[in-house]
Write a protein that binds this DNA or RNA. Structure first.
Length: 572
RNA sequence: GCCCUCGUAGCUCAGCGGAUAGAGCACCGGCCUCCGAAGCCGGGGGCGCAGGUUCGAUUCCUGCCGGGGGCACCA
């Protein structure tokens, strides 16, 4: 089905095209009526004619019979009020549409979403939260649009720290180390390795030597390294499971994966004449980047000591994603501080011809997580906060809140529900603010069941679903006409019809918060309807109609939340 | 110093060049013999400052003030 918005836009466009082809009507939803058209004024300006005169001309050419009533308002706005028969028809189409109006992509794209990226042998902490949650939402949005998503978890599994980590593993004994790591105690493992490295010269020497054997591909060293990686990935999977994140072990393609391609990166850049030697380092200087002294800023592909920097790895990854994975789009869900790095790496990849113009490559950046003191979110003692600790804390609070509200829930079911609510709370709080801004992590606020929160939305859904449990027979949506006589019914219908635009708005702008805002608005529109319009006690004809609206609301909330990675329980 | 970002109500945030700048929290006032009050209805309060472009600027541009980030071998 064509979305309501599109159906109107097509007709508007036809009328505008007759006056000036390609002119954007600027159709927007309106707070004073259903839709407003803002494009007349700028068109009139270009034509050098009075706006209202142009508006009249457009209205004459506009075919909105049985779709909307048009009124010229103010300096030249067109206010559109949808006709009841059109609304009825549109809602009826929604009833039979599992996708709730979202049209699947006609040409599926191959989209690489690079997100989460924790470090091997290191705890996942709040710093990984946003990448993980935002990346997962984008993953789901693209997937639902019908694209082929290739998730990539670019874990930090290589580099100098691994000499130290492997030596520590040797010291502990493999079994002992595996036990420590398998219970997820990555922090203490890393910390003790670090402590030894800082304190013990002999250990330092061994660590340095171990890095060399690791890079040389010594089988025994690689075996030990593999233990660290496997244990860590198993642990990450647990955390993802706890957070309900789509990433699987198979999506883990860490830095080490590209080791074999790094020399080729340098060689090929050199062959293209892009490499310059600068203080012994092999660099590319993409135009337009300067350092603090106004000198050209390099992308260091190979360091003076012949090691490879992460720029080399990122370039190798781009080549792999374009050439092997045949990506049409590559998204890096990584924090804003990396902005310049990615700009420069993308620039080099474009210069080298590795990243053709047809491939959209974007740094999906995001702001920091702050504490309520507006500083980087840390514990009081200044340590980073473990992701699992954060989630557990949220679960405890949700559990307490549920206990207070519903004493009937038994322990296990309540704990299970608390987990769902906690995930909803944390994810929604993260996703509902504009991605690029810093946001304040306030557990009290996000776990609250009141206001613009995940739990509120989950509750709104559960509340709608509760209506259907009171029915004698399973509900079958069959409704074909909608009178929408009550203003609250009409408002709800209009809200439901807005889902496809909210979805595509969130997707094209890579802005999950737009979908959040839509869902919250819909939930409020529903509860207003629910207060004003009895459903089960209404006369048959109206009751059927209202039940259909309730069903659509529940489906929209559930689908919208699912696309954000949030589960909507049947009851709570 | 250069570059990038952000500055909207007491607090946390929306606002895609359009009409009277919206929510949530907090605060005040109403609403449960009736489908889940985790709710609904109503109220007070705001675009950092100064210019510019435009028929129209919270939105685009410039400068200033204030916060955050980046600026060569860690990733």
């Amino acid at each position: 089905m064509a979305t309501t918005y599109d159906a109107i836009l097509v007709r508007l466009q036809a009328a505008f095209d007759e006056i000036e082809p390609g002119c954007d009507p600027v159709l927007r939803s309106s707070d004073r009526t259903d839709f407003q058209v803002n494009g007349v004024m700028s068109l009139a300006k270009r034509l050098g004619r009075p706006p209202r005169e142009v508006a009249e001309e457009i209205v004459e050419r506009l075919d909105l019979d049985h779709v909307a009533d048009v009124e010229i308002a103010g300096p030249g706005f067109l206010n559109l009020t949808l006709r009841p028969e059109f609304l009825s028809d549109q809602v009826a189409q929604l009833v039979n549409d599992e996708r709730l109006g979202v049209v699947a992509a006609t040409t599926p794209l191959r989209v690489v979403v690079d997100y989460s990226a924790p470090n091997v042998a290191k705890e996942m902490h709040v710093g990984h939260l946003r990448s993980t949650v935002i990346g997962d939402a984008l993953h789901r949005l693209y997937r639902f649009q019908g694209h082929h998503v290739i998730a990539r978890n670019h874990v930090g599994d290589w580099g100098t720290p691994f000499g130290m980590l492997i030596e520590h593993l040797v010291d502990m004994g493999e079994q002992n180390a595996i036990e420590t790591l398998s219970i997820g105690d990555l922090d203490s493992f890393y910390r003790s390795a670090r402590a030894k490295f800082d304190a013990d010269e002999a250990f330092r020497e061994r660590s340095r030597a171990r890095v060399v054997t690791l890079q040389a591909g010594d089988p025994e060293t690689l075996r030990l390294w593999r233990i660290l990686v496997d244990q860590s990935v198993a642990y990450f999977s647990e955390v993802y499971g706890k957070l309900d994140i789509l990433l699987r072990p198979i999506d883990v393609v860490g830095e080490s994966f590209y080791n074999g391609a790094l020399e080729g990166v340098v060689r090929d850049l050199d062959a293209l004449g892009l490499i310059e030697d600068s203080d012994g380092a092999q660099c590319v200087f993409p135009p337009g980047f300067t350092n603090r002294d106004g000198e050209p800023l390099p992308v260091i592909v190979q360091k003076r000591d012949e090691g490879f920097g992460y720029a080399a790895t990122d370039l190798a990854a781009i080549r792999d994603r374009v050439d092997t994975l045949a990506a049409d789009e590559i998204l890096y869900v990584v924090g804003t501080p990396q902005a310049q790095h990615f700009e420069m790496v993308f620039a080099v990849a474009r210069m080298a011809g590795w990243l053709p113009d047809r491939v959209r490559c974007e740094h999906v950046n995001f702001g920091n997580v702050l504490g309520t003191d507006r500083k980087m979110f840390k514990t009081r003692s200044g340590e980073t906060i473990k992701l699992v600790a954060l989630l557990d804390e949220a679960i405890d609070r949700a559990d307490a809140a549920l206990t207070e509200r519903d004493a009937d829930l038994d322990g296990d079911a309540r704990r299970q529900l608390a987990t769902v609510v906690a995930r909803a709370a944390i994810k929604y709080a993260d996703l509902s603010t504009e991605r690029q801004r810093d946001y304040v992590f306030d557990l009290d606020r996000m776990v609250a069941f009141e206001g613009d929160t995940g739990p509120y939305l989950a509750y709104a859904h559960a509340r709608v679903r509760s209506i259907f449990r009171r029915l004698d027979a399973p509900y079958e949506p069959t409704r074909a006409t909608f009178a929408l006589a009550h203003p609250a019914e009409r408002a709800l219908a209009l809200g439901l019809l807005g889902f496809p635009e909210a979805f595509s708005g969130a997707l094209t702008a890579l802005a999950p918060h737009r979908l959040c805002a839509y869902l919250f608005d819909l939930a409020q529109t529903f509860t207003s309807f629910y207060e004003a319009c009895p459903v089960l006690n209404a006369p048959d004809e109206i009751r059927e109609e209202r039940l259909a609206l309730c069903d659509l609301t529940a489906r929209t909330l559930a689908l919208g939340l699912e696309l954000l990675g949030i589960e909507a329980p049947e009851r709570m």
